[in-house]
Amino acid sequence: MAIDKYLRERFFPHMWCAGCGHGTVLNALVRAIETMGMSRNEIVMVSGIGCSSRITGYVDVHTLHTLHGRALAFATGVKLSKPELNVIVPMGDGDALAIGGNHFIHAARRNIAITALVMNNRIYGMTGGQYSPLSGCEVLAATAPYTTIDPSFDVVALSVAAGATFVARCTTYHVKEMIDILRQAILHEGFSVVEILSPCPTYFGRSNKLGDAAEMLRGFKEDTVPVGSAAKQKNPELIERGIFVQKEKPEYCAAYEKIMQKARSAAGETI
């Protein structure tokens, strides 16, 4: 099987719970990389802390498992230092948008060519099911025994506003769509964000009585529609999937190249 070479098979079976969507993201991600025929030596995966962040351990590329919330800051150092590398940053929703929220918007603002994945399971799984910035209102969680009163971010709107030049959303039910979106996100020359709705049957599903993993995936099927669909106008509660933004803007490392040229000519130096 062609994807085997991208996996560190000695660490399988992996550490995620039965039915956890993060395994499906890993599955789709290695397939997306495989279709592009990229060398494993030119890919760096940088992650933070949380269930999602353990994904780096399973992929046979250069992997950097860092601090909670800081993956994009580490990744910025890797990418600016060696722009020829493909840098992919899988994050959880708390990792990316609570503790890492500032790094997220600033990486987007710079439009540095990094692929940011927000694996949105609406919960902190690793620490035992506390609510996250994407839990939304009126859900039950370990730290919300009387339901949450915190609204959630709209990751797509936030990313667009912050300056990301590729913004998409998909789910672990719609896997072929996810593989295609991940491929386009990785190829994009700029900061790309892919929000992936990923079920946590163990904590979010159980505390909110959403059924097993398959039931939760059925929910993704029923609650989402392709972007621009007429159904969304009839029912605003539906969540849109697909590519929302895909545009060209000067990429950060390319812009820095020009600064180096400017600096050299200003200094009248040849080196």
Binding site: L64, A73, F74, T76, G77, S81, K82, N102
Partner: peptide, 18 residues
């Protein structure tokens, strides 16, 4: 110039690894 000192420290670690 990073968004804060946390990011600055993280960025130099990432760059050192290259």
């Amino acid at each position: 110039q990073m968004e804060d000192e946390i990011a600055s420290m993280c960025a130099i670690i990432g760059a050192s690894l290259t």
